[in-house]
Structure formats: C-alpha cells, structure tokens
C-alpha cells in the first residue's frame, strides 16, 4: 500500500502534466473502464479554474489574443507556474515574463508590458488602504522643509515604462471603447497605476514624472527626486506636477518621520 504522501504527489504530477496520467496512477483508481476519463475531470478542472483566474486578471490580453489562443497560453502557464498561494487574488504574477518568452508572440512585442499594466491594476485593487495626503499637512511646512521631505507615494502605486504605446492599447481595449487602430509609431509610454481610495486609476504621465515618482517611492527626498527627474526629462516641471498630483491621491498622509533631520 502506498503512503498518502506518495499518492497525493502522484495525483498532482498527473494534474499538472500535459501528457496523459501514468499507468501507475490509473492503477490506483477503482476500475470501471473509465479511470482515465474520471481522472481527466480533475486534470481539466485544474487548468480551467486557474486559467479562469488568469483570464479575470488579464482581460485586455485575452481580447488582444482571442479567447482560444488565450486559453492555450493560460493552460501552459498554469502547468509551468501553478499557484503558490492559497488565495488566487494575485495569481499570474509571472504571466508577463511568460508571454515575453513565447516565440510565436514575438510579433506582438507590446504584449508583455500590457500584461504588466494589467497585473498592476489587480495588485493596486487589493493593496493596503492608506489615507492620502491632505492640504492641511502641507500648509504647515516651511519651503525648506518641503525640499527635504521624503514624500511617500501611495502603496498601491505601480510605475510601468514601456517602449510601446501601452496606455493607448490598454484604453482602446476597455469595455465600451470603439475599435481603433493604434500605431506602434506612437512610441513608448509611461504609466502610473494607483488606487487612492476605491477606484483603480490608470494614468499616462511624462518620463520625468515617472522618474520623480520612482525616486520618491525609493525613499529619496523631493530635492534628490527632482534632480533625477530632470536628468531623465529636461522638460520636467515640478510646479506643474505638484499642481496636478499633490492632492489627487498620489501621495500618502505624512508620517512624523517624513522629514530628514
């Protein structure tokens, strides 16, 4: 008699495999001539249920590839990278890298970055709820203190920089959008995905703004982050950036340790 551990692992090997289950496994199942078909219900459920979770996370990728191609890729992904967590909320973290490595998709070079945007959307959706920066907190600061401030972007923020127009591609593939043709000649885009309160927001920003936010997220002061942003993008305008983003939920409430000594 096989120990429980061996049987359960053999069962898992069969679930995950793209090949039919081993005779060794089928021999453990009560024989009514349908052992293979019965086992295949589980094998099929495994790729379908987890593939459905991927489809929920990547609706734009599914739309770009079509349901049939998406299902094939999702099945391969589930077998290569089965869920490592008991909750499926963030299942599919490596899907962008997976897509980038599929030779047949090399003609769609923007796909992986669109997938990164979609993962960021779900990650932001389930991120910590944190109070956003309010005007009263900033009003109390002197101009000197402001420059040395380590302003923290909201923990739900994700920054994505792409060589392709992924913002336009993502936007054009939302429900209710008209069919339109997007030219890859539009060039790259920088995208911030963030959830200040209830709704996840996807915003296209300038290269300087993205560099500025990434530096702040890294823990730099406003002064240092500004230097980085201008190196990246000579047109970066700090006043315009703050006029637009200081109180729109991009930043968290200030903590006591928010300023340098």
């Amino acid at each position: 008699m096989k120990p429980l551990s061996e049987l359960q692992q053999m069962f898992c090997d069969g679930l995950r495999s793209s090949a039919p289950p081993s005779t060794l496994l089928l021999n453990e199942i009560v024989d009514d001539g349908l052992q293979l078909e019965r086992f295949n219900v589980y094998r099929n459920n495994f790729v379908v249920l987890n593939g459905d979770a991927l489809a929920d996370m990547y609706p734009v990728i599914k739309r770009l590839l079509g349901a049939e191609a998406f299902r094939l890729l999702a099945t391969a992904y589930v077998r290569d990278y089965p869920p490592m967590d008991r909750a499926l909320l963030l299942y599919g973290e490596r899907f962008a890298d997976f897509l980038a490595a599929v030779p047949e998709l090399s003609g769609l070079p923007y796909l992986a970055d669109v997938a990164r945007l979609e993962f960021a959307w779900t990650a932001a959706y389930h991120a910590d709820d944190v109070a956003v920066l309010g005007q009263h907190q900033v009003a109390a600061l002197s101009p000197d203190a402001l420059e040395n401030l380590r302003l923290q972007p909201h923990p739900s923020m994700h920054c994505i920089s792409s060589d392709y127009p992924i913002y336009s591609i993502w936007l054009a593939n939302q429900d209710g959008q008209m069919e339109e043709t997007i030219s890859l000649d539009e060039g790259g885009s920088q995208v911030v995905v963030i959830r200040p309160k209830v709704e996840v927001e996807v915003r296209e920003v300038s290269p300087g703004s993205l560099a500025f936010l990434q530096s702040l997220a890294f823990g730099e002061t406003i002064g240092t982050a500004y230097t980085r942003a201008v190196e990246m993008d000579a047109e970066f305008d700090l006043h315009a950036f703050f006029a637009r983003h200081l109180f729109d939920g991009t930043f968290c409430e200030l903590q006591n340790q928010g300023t340098t000594d």
Binding site: Q9, P83, M84, D85
Partner: peptide
C-alpha cells in the same frame, strides 16, 4: 485536499 507539493491545485481533490 489541494496541497500535494509546494503548489496548490485550487480545486478540491478526492481523499483516500
């Protein structure tokens, strides 16, 4: 059960 290796099946598997 749903945990035979380090990964999870997420579907409910039959017991012995």
């Amino acid at each position: 059960w749903s945990h035979g290796y380090e990964w999870y099946t997420h579907d409910l598997m039959p017991l012995i």
